[in-house]
Write a protein that binds this DNA or RNA. Sequence first.
DNA 1: GGAGATTAGGTTATAATGTTGCAATTCTAC
DNA 2: GTAGAATTGCAACATTATAACCTAATCTCC
Lengths: 158, 158
Amino acid sequence: MAQNVYKAHDHHACIDSAVSRARTLCEEQGARLTPVRQRVLELVWANHKPVGAYDLLPKLAEEGFNSAPPTVYRALDFLLDLGLVHRISSLNAFIGCTHPGEAHPSCFFVCRECGEAQELDAEQVNKIARQAEQMLGVKVEQQMTELMGLCPRCQDAV
Amino acid sequence: MAQNVYKAHDHHACIDSAVSRARTLCEEQGARLTPVRQRVLELVWANHKPVGAYDLLPKLAEEGFNSAPPTVYRALDFLLDLGLVHRISSLNAFIGCTHPGEAHPSCFFVCRECGEAQELDAEQVNKIARQAEQMLGVKVEQQMTELMGLCPRCQDAV
DNA sequence: GGAGATTAGGTTATAATGTTGCAATTCTAC
DNA sequence: GTAGAATTGCAACATTATAACCTAATCTCC
């Protein structure tokens, strides 16, 4: 299980480590972590809630970056390719990956109240994939699982 | 495992049984399977590929139905609520459910070449959900898993 | 260090997907 | 048959994502 977002933590450390992991990964892969790309990564990591591409635009604009949709989508595509962020399809939104570096399935729990997302271990999804490959003869290349419900805090808040 | 779409089958039977299951389910629940709703269900079942809402519009128009977006989305929402169709978030598309009646997680394999989708048994996803509930204290209400890759036919075609 | 190739970013327009709000109609139950 | 609920028609609009085309920056190789 990845780091638990429901526990108190120094969130600056989340952002910092996300950026430094990104830097390392880019060096390894010969990719360029340009200013827009790094800033988009930081903004995605601003909290643990998936963020829409169009939410990022005004923030980039404030800081003097170009802020047309293609700019953000290109940065997001770059980060997705490197596995630094995941896309939460059911929300059309993006969230930082807690363990980038190796290709891995996207597997999240998202709270329908507060919107916070928790990355989950995807071992079981791998099992589904292997099962499907054996029983149906398909070849699985990508996987995503999204669970929705209430996080501990929002259950209590009711 | 639900019915295997990669095996030859009489597809009219798929559609017919989908409609008759829908009829039964609607009676049980006191819901109305109106003409638009039934036709949308049939169109979604036209093949085993997820279909976009906007793909349905012209087909409905041809047949004299109203064909504004809300018409289709309302019908789809109705069918989703009853579990008669699933939404494939990563494609913004909809596909018929092979075993409606009880609430159950959405779990599909989708071929990136031909677009055909195969519903999968979601037992493993239930495990993920129970694990997350125990370890994190979350409450899972909805689940979806989407696998992407190549189906047997499209692997051979390469 | 300079030519050509590659990658990244700027800009405008537009495509694709999904929603809101309200009026009109149809159905259901009493 | 009438009130209330559910459904549909309709127009406008909101959100999300991409295409196309060009300029600028960076890299590579000699």
